[in-house]
Amino acid sequence: MRNVKHNQPSDAPEPPGDGENEALAKLLRTAGPRLDPPRERRERAYAAVRREWQRVAKARRKRRYIVWGIASAAAAMVALAFLPSLMRRLNTPPDRAVAKFERVEGGVKIASKDGTRDAKAGESLLAGESLQTLKDGHAALLASGGESLRVDAEAKVRALSETAFQLESGRVYVDSGGKTGGVEIRTDFGNTKDIGTQFSVSLDGKLTVRVREGKVELKRGDEKALAAAGEELTAAPKVAIARAQVPVNGPLWDWAADLAPAFKMDGKPAKSYLEWVCHEKAWTLKYADAKAEAAASAIVLHGALESTSLDASLDAVLAVSGLSYRIKDNTLTVSQTE
């Protein structure tokens, strides 16, 4: 975590300047870091501008094809037999991104038709590419529809489209952000589709689907099963789908919470941060009293959270906000520090 502070005057000593550019340094520090647009705004704009760009690029490709066609009419006659497949190729945008890496930790590889490369945060996963996490590797991706897809260590996932991913081994977690039917996780043992939810899918000789929030539909051939929050479905070969109860928080889910993309806290009230933590951990948020709640609403956070565990970020953010907390029975209770 860096530069986490609330909006009360700081007594910290001013960082050293540049000497010869002291006035400029002071001016820049006075204004503070430039604020990044909130994630939701960025995502909405990204989707809209990308649609427009794809339309423009596609029209241009078609136009270029037409110009080329007129100039080469004779050759085009010969090539007529190949036109349908050529048109299909022209209409398919190359390098179609289906998700973006938000967090990459340890060894994460991307395999494509051009070979294998190391995954980096900020880069895209393209349709047809596979990502593989090594023993120490974890990745969090943002799917095109805004869903969060988190991949545990020693897993292999292939991107089929914007809405479908093939889990070939290991474990993934999906947070659809409350939307329905956003992401389908396919496996050789059956396919899962969310109904506004947080869930995990893992493969180890059988398919296990655990639901934390909302509902998930598991489909295997003609067999269908619906799991609700706190339920687990298991699909093993030649055996009917089994159902069991499962806790919605605790060690089964902590790996996914720790992989959550960093909360963009700059300019946001501490209350929003606390709500986000509780969403990720499936905790209930409570305030010790009205004063604590008012303080959490009034304190505006600045800076950024670097990759760190959620528990560590909670300690750091509350420490600088003058708030303290305790966790009991999956309830996070926040109070003002004495």
Partner: peptide, 20 residues
């Protein structure tokens, strides 16, 4: 203009924040 997805991402990442 040639339809390269990574170029679009680079364009958006470099400019949206500033324009916003």
């Amino acid at each position: 203009l040639s339809g390269e997805e990574r170029a679009f991402e680079q364009f958006f990442e470099a400019n949206f924040g500033g324009l916003y």
